[in-house]
Simulated assay, not measured.
Amino acid sequence: MNFGLCHNVSRQIRFISLRRVQIDLRSSPLKCFCRVYVPLVAHKKKWQEYKHKRTKFEYERSNHFWQHFWSLFTTRGGITASSAFSIFSWFKWHKEEDITPETKLVEAIKRSVLCIQREQFDKAEQMLHLALRMAQDINSKEGIIYIYDVMANLAMEREQYTKAEKLFADVMRSLLADGHTETSPQILHISSKLAHMAQLQGDLEKAQLGFVWTLKGIQKNIEELDYDKDVQELFGLTKNWFGQLQLRQAKYEDAKKNFQEAFELLTDLYGPSNDKIIIILNNLSVTCVHLEDYTGAKNYIEHALTIAKDLNDIAQQGILEANLGLIYFHEGFLAKAKQICQNAYRIGKKCNNDDAVEQAEYCLNEIKATSASE
């Protein structure tokens, strides 16, 4: 878990950063791509009928994301998925009776993606290696690159950063050999993730250089190209990650500016009520605490809570409630803070969210320690 530390008070208070399914803006575009819907249909025949109707739609949806190489991670969430190559336009749709090596490869990739969504990571990795051998057997260049990218995102999600960096480097070399330039959106997306991983590993100088270079490249794309949704999404994702780095560097005003720009970009793309916005609002709240703007911090958290409730996102709600309790604790309103953190604890227990339970316990322990010393 990532915690922001408040250095402006005598007692250091931690605020947990949301790890949202599939766009913890630490997220990965993979997870948005991977969002294959599996209905809770008990009867096998009904499931087969449902799958027949849905599957083609899901492949077409995935193809849209992969046209510009968004292989998100997110996060949880969410990190948000696209690609430099249209792999699913290459994997054309076939009827069930038209079984070919290509359709078998598609099925293997699809199963891997489902395993990732179910957080069966070991099984997903095994299936991806199987899919890679299948792609190599049929000499599918596009399939091989695609699978390496999914593997890289999976490694990033599992915090296997050295492995993820090597896999992303392989993908980048393949894309460059295929005619892409250093400032193409596909390359810039990988660069953004590499910078983010450097930040997560504590190499802040490398992360700084990476984000500055990536943002310049994205800005150039925006100026030279017509409006592109995927480039705008990449811009918002990178701005948010850069803001997280600046928080660690204690550049709070700069961090706030980047979070606000990320908020505006992703709100324009997805509307005012989506899980990506929740994460950025939480980051803005933490930044305001560092700036001792407690009113602003509460406003951002309460906005995020409203969205979480609208989306029935109980897991996020528990963490947000705990962070809100810490803000009230920060201001000295111990009774109010205790009430909110107790509610956060109940929510966390109800939805089996260890992060929410841990943060609520931390908040309650801080309140207890402060009360005992008075």
Rank of each mutant, 00 (worst) to 15 (best):
N2F: 14
S10M: 13
I13A: 04
R14P: 02
F15V: 05
S17P: 00
R19Q: 13
R19M: 08
L25C: 03
P29A: 12
K31V: 10
C34Q: 10
C34F: 12
R35D: 13
R35L: 08
V38F: 02
L40Q: 13
Q48K: 14
H52I: 05
K56R: 10
F65E: 01
S71I: 13
F73P: 03
R76W: 04
I79E: 10
S86Y: 00
F91C: 11
W93F: 13
E96Y: 01
E96R: 08
E97D: 12
D98T: 06
P101T: 09
I109W: 00
V113Q: 03
L114N: 02
L114R: 07
D122F: 09
E125D: 14
Q126V: 14
M127D: 11
M127T: 13
H129R: 12
A131I: 10
K141D: 07
E142N: 07
I145Y: 06
Y146A: 10
I147G: 09
I147L: 12
V150I: 15
L154Q: 08
L154Y: 02
L154M: 08
Y161I: 06
A164H: 05
A169V: 04
S174H: 09
G179C: 10
E182L: 13
E182Y: 08
S184D: 14
S192Q: 03
K193D: 09
K193R: 15
A207P: 03
Q208F: 08
F211K: 05
W213G: 08
E224T: 15
Y227D: 04
V231P: 00
Q232R: 11
E233S: 08
G236W: 04
K251E: 15
A255E: 04
A255K: 01
N258V: 00
L269M: 08
I277A: 03
I278Y: 04
N283V: 02
S285M: 06
T287M: 02
T287Y: 01
D293F: 10
K298A: 07
N299Y: 01
A304G: 10
T306S: 11
T306C: 06
I307F: 06
A315C: 10
Q317H: 14
L320I: 09
L324T: 01
Y328R: 09
A335T: 14
I340R: 01
K349Q: 15
K350R: 12
K350L: 12
N352V: 06
D355Y: 12
Q359R: 13
E361V: 06
Y362Q: 07
Y362H: 06
L364A: 01
T370P: 00
S371H: 02
S373I: 12
E374A: 02
